[in-house]
Amino acid sequence: MALRGAIVVDTEKCKGCSVCVVNCPTNTIALSKEVNSKGYNYAYMASPENCTGCTNCATVCPDTCITVYRVKV
């Protein structure tokens, strides 16, 4: 059994602080080259196939802009 996960980032709320990026144990997240309306490079799943839905990113996100989904496959 393996875990597959995915995150959804509220890109307008994200301030691009990178705290989720360094806390992701599977290197799933990176900052986008695109910016939101405030000019922040928001977080996104750069390697979605790596995500296990561990919720570490959402737990440390200071702006609580990450929602996490997980399935057992």
Binding site: G5, A6, P48, T55, A58, C65, T67, Y69, R70, V71
Partner: peptide
């Protein structure tokens, strides 16, 4: 294949963390 997977994962019943 990956794109299909993501859609299957992001469903309300699979939500494990969201803003309180």
């Amino acid at each position: 294949h990956t794109t299909m997977d993501i859609k299957d994962i992001i469903k309300p019943e699979n939500k494990v963390y969201s803003k309180t």
